[in-house]
Design a protein around this nucleic acid. Structure first.
Length: 247
DNA sequence: CGAAATGTTTATGA
DNA sequence: CTCATAAACATTTC
């Protein structure tokens, strides 16, 4: 659920309900610091996503929902797990579980820059390249998870992008040929849209080339290791993915 | 049943 | 004070 494309799917599902600007008739849930009175009878102006954040926008504030690792939601359905936030409208309800809810004051545009959102129309690849050049020592397996550069990219996207561009996860940005830096940025967005398409078709895991795999498409063995300062599981092919400088 | 997993924040210590 | 590391949180799947 938690990577950027999955949040876009949630947003699209809600748009498909054609709610318009629904009034909140009921608020439930255990989210801490949740001011239920503030939400009651307010009208939702818009549903947005930014990276892994799902945003419910009101006139003067925005609810931010972050699903972390285990978060889920149900639309017009519910389950036994403790409800974190439930919103009921005239004919529909949205239920969010195991997520973090925050209230952002003021206009949502003051809080987010959509140039960094890997799924947004406003995505700015040149800005991403510029930020990468400012961190020459950083490892490629870490920068892909940096939400200030690639908001929405998670561990699956990280691993698949690096295999697609045949770059070893332990390369430093400064050691990559400029064409590979460009390819990194381009594929981060490309793969995210493939992720979106495959996730909608329910075929995402069938398309994994390295993530959670034993061998790569060329039948080489996959290495699985916790790498970088993020210490996330990294799956890569030592034969297909090049390490440009060793030290 | 134990382990691991699409993630981030907070606490702790050097 | 800042950085690196550890711990914390919560649920489903294999």
């Amino acid at each position: 659920m938690p990577e950027g494309p999955s949040i876009v799917i949630l947003k699209d599902l809600i748009k498909d309900l054609h709610l318009g600007k629904p009034e909140i008739l009921e608020v439930e849930g255990s989210a801490k610091n949740l001011d239920k009175d503030r939400l009651l009878h307010e009208k939702i102006q818009d549903f947005k996503s930014w990276g892994k954040h799902f945003l419910i926008c009101f006139k003067d504030f925005t609810l931010r929902i972050h699903f972390m690792l285990f978060g889920t939601y149900l639309i017009n359905a519910h389950k036994k797990t403790k409800l974190t936030l439930g919103l009921a409208f005239k004919n529909d309800e949205l239920n969010f579980y195991t997520c973090k809810v925050d209230l952002l004051e003021g206009n949502v545009k003051e809080h987010y820059n959509w140039e960094n959102d890997i799924m947004a129309e406003e995505w700015n690849s040149r800005a991403a390249i510029k930020k990468l050049k400012e961190m020459p020592e950083a490892l490629v397996c870490d920068v892909l998870l940096d939400q200030h550069i690639f908001s929405g990219v998670g561990n699956i996207i990280k691993n698949e992008v690096l295999y697609r561009i045949k770059v070893h996860p332990l390369n430093k940005i400064e050691d990559l040929p400029p064409a590979k830096v460009k390819a990194l940025v381009k594929e981060a967005r490309n793969y995210s849209f493939d992720f979106l398409k495959w996730k909608k078709e329910n075929t995402l895991s069938k398309h994994w080339e390295v993530y959670s795999q034993k061998e790569c498409p060329r039948k080489h063995p996959i290495t699985k290791k916790e790498l970088g300062k993020t210490h996330r599981q990294t799956y890569y092919c030592g034969k297909c993915q090049k390490l440009y400088q060793q030290n």
